Simulated scan of single mutants.
Amino acid sequence: MEIRLDLLPAEKRRKLDLEGGLPFGRIFTDHMFLMLYDEAKGWHSHQIKPYEPICLDPAAAVFHYSQTIFEGLKAYYGVDGRIRLFRPERNMARMNYSARRMCMPSIDEGFVLKALKTLVDIEKDWVPREKGSALYIRPLMMGTEAFLGVKPSSEYIFFIILSPVGAYYKEGFNPIKIYVTDKYVRAAPGGVGDVKTGGNYAASLMASEEAARLGYTQVLWLDAVERRYVEEVGTMNIFFYFEEELVTPALTGTILPGITRESVIQMARSWGLKVSERRITIDEVIEGAKTGRLKECFGTGTAAVISPVGCLAYKGKEYIINEGKTGPLAKKLFEELTGIQYGEKPDPYGWIQFVP
């Protein structure tokens, strides 16, 4: 499969402008990758073209039945001037997992990763140089067949767009405050909680808005059945450090299998820490915060990498963790992960791929 290049002439290309800062997900580069699918041809018309609106029929399946999946990863400008990707093959594999669950066609993971690297190489001048900044990469697939009726689409668009970004949270690498909701639920057993599909995020908006009005950065979700077991934060997986045990909720089909989560588990175990993937109740977390047994809490995800949590609000009360400060384990994990991503530290795990 070949990728057709339809690039803007040099004089029409924009430059990365840092004057107004880098708000997350608001600025987009000059070009995008796009390919089409239909049942007769499979994936076809692979091209890198100028970034522009996509024209869809008002009856397109994505509008009415939410057949859409996406991924999120970053390109980092290393201290040696080379551009790095962090475990991009895991994003490709997860996208195919999502596609199967949503009755959508699989992608050729190797080909799409090649297209992604080609696009990033074309837009390499958009990769911010400052540590903490990066080029966010958003692959997305959606059903485009025009019809009304509940069935999988027979036509799809897949595209990749790029966005230079700064820190995800305005707090930066400082503890955030999280609101625990037992009113709303994010995902139920047998549903699509472990799939990166748009509907999951739409369902989270009400609780997120309520949390924001109360002064909290994110929502911590509990299970849909008993409203007792911790699941994940709106944009992150969650970890609790109890004395000598690092705990994160087990992947039971209602939690997104985060790539940063997976990396933290592997890294912490390589340091000799006991890491448990198990069910954990909110009562255990609150009791740990009250007694001091809970030493640290932090979220993990592509956008923020490691996000320390200094306060949990539950049933009208706030519980402070580690005096509201960033803990040494979260700090070490953040420094090690970002050190690998920006080429400041060796990569003993083989996680990094280079562009081109």
Rank of each mutant, 00 (worst) to 15 (best):
P139D: 10
K177S: 14
S153D: 01
V195G: 10
T181F: 02
D121N: 15
K124P: 00
F147D: 06
Y201G: 02
V180K: 09
V180Y: 12
V180W: 12
Y168Q: 10
E171I: 00
V127S: 02
Y156N: 11
R129T: 12
V150H: 01
K131P: 14
I178K: 01
F158G: 08
S153V: 01
L140F: 13
G143L: 04
E145W: 00
G172C: 14
Y136I: 03
L162A: 10
G166S: 12
R138T: 03
G132M: 05
F159G: 04
I176D: 02
P175Y: 10
A187M: 04
W126L: 03
A134H: 02
S163W: 05
Y184V: 06
G166Y: 13
V150I: 13
P175S: 08
Y168T: 07
V185E: 00
P189K: 09
S153I: 01
V165F: 15
K170A: 13
L140V: 15
M142T: 10
P152G: 04
M142H: 12
P164M: 08
A188L: 09
Y156R: 09
R186H: 00
G198N: 12
G198I: 14
K124D: 00
T144L: 12
Y168H: 08
S153P: 01
M141H: 03
I178Q: 00
A188E: 12
A202C: 05
D182E: 15
D125H: 12
D121G: 12
F158T: 11
L162R: 11
N200I: 12
M141V: 14
Y136H: 03
G149K: 09
N200D: 14
T181V: 01
P189Y: 09
Y201K: 00
R186C: 00
A187L: 06
V185C: 02
N174Q: 08
D125F: 03
K151E: 13
Y184R: 05
S153T: 01
G193V: 06
V185F: 08
F158Y: 15
F159D: 06
G143D: 02
I137A: 03
N174R: 10
Y168E: 11
F158D: 11
P164H: 09
K170S: 14
E171D: 07
I137G: 06
F159A: 07
I137C: 06
Y136G: 03
I157D: 06
G172P: 14
K196S: 05
G190W: 07
I137N: 06
I176F: 04
I122Q: 01
L119Q: 08
G143N: 03
L119A: 06
G199Y: 03
G190K: 13
G149D: 05
A188F: 09
Y169H: 11
K124M: 00
